[in-house]
Design a protein around this nucleic acid. Structure first.
Lengths: 337, 337
DNA sequence: ATGAAAGCGCTAACAT
DNA sequence: ATGTTAGCGCTTTCAT
């Protein structure tokens, strides 16, 4: 067991602990000869520095946290991969936190920031409110946000343009000849929901199509919610030939309901989701969706956040909007089945 | 910013740091009155203990690591959820590590164990060899293994019976009238591959069917590998009416190849995978597969490992075999399309 | 270029 | 039941 301490290395290499520490931290103030001697001792003893001691003394951990609401969903895991690779490149480690859609777990994980286990925390569309998020930043904790923006000077945010994205989806459906398009939103208080709804309405207005609030239902961003929301639409007698779900998970729920009710997609109902989740490509018919540059979003935010953690200079840019891309597949094309 | 220390709390509550520490750690040696006083001070100052200092002093971190090869694959993420919940229940935190199928990253993450960032590390079917894994345990590091067994007295392992599982799959295919069944194995050196191959052969022998090594190909446990392996089988003119892929990922690759080549599943080819990945239920035709109790495996191992970390007594049981379950869906039933 | 020593914030042994 | 204090293993000033 590596229970060696820095003094043991120092002793073996016949130098002081300060010198060993310098070697360990790549200080230029060590002669090459001494450095070799120390490295050899480290090697021989299989010495590994104790992270807790190092963190305690240096007051930083070179570790980032990412908090996502469900690691089963590929939207999150792809973002995580982007973060991870960018972080590793900059010599940061990453702690992945799965809040499992529970706000309590989210809050619990935020303690990693408060107890200084991580230097900064990245939140990917959390359940927490803007106020709550801003409060952490007010207390001096470093936070980064993905898929959402919060109005606080110290919080870098990376997101896609939800309004534009929704507009493109709806334009596409209108282009396919649909005039009655239902919309499945996510959590009522999520910005994503709100902005996608806004884009939906704008597209309708652009096309001089009537806006019918009866065609809107909330599916909470998950499969079960999408399934239920779709059924509610049918039960209340809403009439529509296309449906735009604010994410793929809800669209999958719509698929399931359609299978049960023997509604053909896209023959009787065109479906479009958002996120380009893995399943959407394999499901039949292949689902039209919107690809978000998930990996790039993760990588970009990690870089910007690490910049800020080590920043002494001016604040720099804070909001980064990346482009998304409509992926038209079978589920929304009337001439394809 | 919470830059308060335990002495600040002590001062405010007019007690000693020891007393504050006792309150913080739920020691029974504090009078209720003092406890209240201290808690109030903590509350007022919004004090949070510094994790590094605590870990350094107490020589434990109450943190587990899980190392998986790809968090995009639901097999891993479901295991992670099981671990996470069991760990949290026992007041342990979890660091998720995604090695991204790179052995170098695996090794890099093992340093979390060596630098004492985690008290123990759970490996889920890693690329590392048995020897390498055993070496860590020999050096006194706590390790747990999922989906694989290693012959070392200090390594608890949770796995399913691969031989039995493969046997059931092949029996099922034979029962459907198939006599020529191809087998797609994973990494040549993975125990899973070996054991599933063994079960495959046993089932053939039981049924007095000939074993043809020309029907075996390696697909490295991923989609691309499965796709390529299947094509190799065809190119070399192998004849078979059913294929058993050692995991769903490879089976998905087979699906893709079949789509391109217009081979009907299950009409012309029956397909069975292993793992019951999320996609297998959504793909058309629905894929027959083997459900492994992933969540339960994660939870069980986490419990057993934490037991060991805190153990002073006898070693207890070490290998835990859980039952898997064959899920017969459309892809392997000749009378269903 | 190298060393001596203080101290990061906490726990736990010991004293009372 | 509470307080005093040593020390976990490291980094970093200050001295040489």
């Amino acid at each position: 067991m590596t229970d060696n301490r820095i003094v043991d290395v120092a002793r073996r290499a016949s130098v002081s602990v300060a010198t060993v520490s310098r070697v360990l931290n790549d200080s230029p103030l060590v002669s090459p000869k001494t450095k070799t001697k120390v490295m050899q001792a480290i090697e021989e003893m299989k010495y590994t520095p104790n992270a807790s001691a190092k963190n305690l003394r240096s007051k930083k951990t070179m570790t980032l946290g990412v908090l996502v609401s469900d690691i089963l969903i590929s939207y999150y895991t792809e973002i995580i991969k982007g973060i991870e690779n960018a972080a590793n490149r900059l010599h940061y480690k990453l702690i992945i936190c799965d809040a499992q859609n529970e706000k309590d777990k989210e809050i619990a994980y935020m303690s990693l920031l408060m107890d200084r286990t991580v230097d900064a925390m990245i939140l990917v569309t959390p359940l927490m409110s803007d106020r709550e998020i801003a409060a952490y930043a007010d207390n001096g904790y470093q936070i980064g946000l993905i898929g959402r923006a919060v109005d606080h000077p110290d919080i870098p945010c990376v997101l896609t343009d939800n309004v534009k994205l929704a507009r493109e989806v709806v334009n596409h459906l209108i282009g396919q000849g649909h005039g009655e398009i239902a919309f499945l939103s996510g959590y009522a208080d999520a910005i994503d929901s709100y902005e996608r709804l806004e884009g939906y309405m704008k597209a309708l207005r652009d096309a001089r199509l009537p806006f019918d609030p009866g065609l809107i239902e909330n599916g909470n961003f998950n499969e079960t919610g999408g399934y239920a929301a779709f059924k509610r639409l049918l039960e209340k007698g809403a009439r529509f030939t296309a449906i735009f779900a604010a994410n793929d998970e809800m669209a999958i729920g719509v698929y399931r309901a359609c299978e049960e009710l023997e509604i053909r997609i896209p023959g009787q109902l065109a479906v479009v989701g958002v996120d380009n989740e893995r399943v959407s490509k394999y499901i039949t018919p292949k689902m039209s969706t919107v690809e978000q540059p998930k990996y790039a979003m993760g990588a970009l935010l990690a870089e910007k956040l690490i910049d800020r953690v080590n920043a002494s200079d001016e604040p720099a840019e804070r909001i980064f909007k990346l482009d998304s891309q409509l992926m038209i597949r079978a589920s929304s094309q009337s001439n394809v089945e």
